[in-house]
Design a protein around this nucleic acid. Structure first.
Lengths: 124, 124
DNA sequence: TCAAATGTACGAATGTTTTCGTAAATGCAA
DNA sequence: TTGCATTTACGAAAACATTCGTACATTTGA
């Protein structure tokens, strides 16, 4: 699967991932909180996403219901891999340390990560 | 600073970060290894980057010398923050764990990260 | 010296993404 | 019923990014 969502498409996917199934209006209203673009803009984008296979829809009723066709995990991983390749010289650990250095994480978060690391090491 | 480099601009920045100072030809030759686009394309892009303030140049001599004006760390952090905000619900640790789960890192890398984490915890 | 090579400048073509206007169909409520 | 609101479809404009052709200046070396 080599479809990279555009920035606007990602915004729409956020909403779909969160709400599982949406009408165009649902998505539009959600987006309208942070951004202003017309209703038909959102509609058009979602139609394009349908063509690209990023979403599917139930067109049984007049008001269509859209659902995401790509998973959030998959998309996250794709984006991370691309970023590691292009901006972090292929080093995942460099990326991790950069995240940890600037985002002031809580002790709980750090501990969670540490536990996770230990689990990883034991499993190999 | 709210200038987000485009994809092509990032490719050029990679080269500049690596080599510190470059002519257009330097950059072009480097890029030409993986991609094919004409010399004037690279030139034009670098001129645009100059206008945007992404790079500076010494135009004393006929062959101009370009240098990056934004640091690699800053750019990395910007990209990560944006990604955390938009795709990881604002949770840096979620991002970290996703990276660790899929990129099979070596034990050395994992240890490096663990040490780094401990240093972080001791400093707070 | 002077032609070829190398360099910059820059407008314009091309490609992609985003935005919107308008038309047509359907549902809804007075 | 009838007219107003909501919805889809779709073409085309606008905005943004990339690519390239061409003109012109400078350097180089035969």
């Amino acid at each position: 699967m080599e479809i990279k969502p555009t920035e606007s498409e990602l915004e729409i996917l956020q909403v779909l991932w969160e709400k599982k199934a949406c009408t165009v209006r649902d998505v539009h209203e959600e987006l309208a909180q942070n951004k202003d673009a017309g209703y038909t803009t959102t509609l058009k984008l979602m139609q394009i996403m349908l063509e690209k296979g990023l979403v599917e829809r139930d067109a049984t009723n007049r008001t269509h219901i859209y659902k995401p066709l790509i998973s959030i995990e998959h998309t996250r991983q794709n984006m991370l891999n691309k970023m590691i390749d292009t901006v972090f010289n292929g080093s995942a650990s460099q990326l991790v340390m950069q995240v940890l250095s600037n985002k002031t994480s809580s002790k709980e978060e750090l501990d969670m990560i540490k536990n996770y690391l230990e689990k990883l090491e034991n499993n190999t």
